[in-house]
Amino acid sequence: MPLDPATVRRIAHLARMHIEDDDIPRLQTELNGILGWVEQLGAVNVEGVKPLTGAADMALRMRDDAVTDGDIAEKILANAPERAGDYFVVPKVVE
């Protein structure tokens, strides 16, 4: 089912990506091209097949529930676009 302009806009919003109205026809064509191409997976019989979530056949390890790091606020904030003291600053959220 090809994507319509409203769906392209909805996906962009879900992805928190601003798109210009002028870009929608191009994105619609490109995304529909890719989605149309991956449709061929519909031809594969996957009845009873277990999904593979990762390449490695391994179980996730447990580790000790212990603090191993910390006291590095300066390092964590070093790349902040905007900060105040030990806080990241964002546009006002609550009126």
Partner: peptide
């Protein structure tokens, strides 16, 4: 579906 094909 893609994850299942990946399994195959």
């Amino acid at each position: 579906r893609a994850q299942k094909v990946r399994s195959l």
